[in-house]
Amino acid sequence: MDVPSDLLYSTDHEWARREDGRVRVGITDYAQDSLGDVVYVDLPPVGTEVEASAGFGEVESTKSVSDLFAPVSGKVVEVNESLTDTPELINSDPYGEGWLVVIEPSDPSQLDSLLDAAAYAELTGN
């Protein structure tokens, strides 16, 4: 499984990337592989306030529905609109084109409680 060293990870299998005070969020390679073919993604509109560890959306594969949990609290400032028509980007490029949302964190210190790549790799048995 691919676990890029420059990202932070939640135990709910989301990744977070710091970008100029904002946080880009997606699901990990491990998560997309466990899910299988993603066929639908439900994301909140821009402007939605999300809370760390609370559900903010859903991702559906051919057979199952999974909740998405925010790695940090804050406001959604960008949503990956291309997932509406091509949700399979989550499978093909989970750390790139398959990103979900960008969050403006209300408490950036929450990022400190996320896992680094080594800890996440250990969590997923890599």
């Binding site: 709910d12 299998h13 989301e14 699901i27 998560a31 899910l35 859903e58 991702v59 057979k63 199952s64 529905v65 999974s66 909740d67 998405l68 949990f69």
Partner: peptide
């Protein structure tokens, strides 16, 4: 991410 209403019935 966590499975909610999966087919683990």
């Amino acid at each position: 991410m966590a499975e909610s209403s999966a087919e683990s019935d």
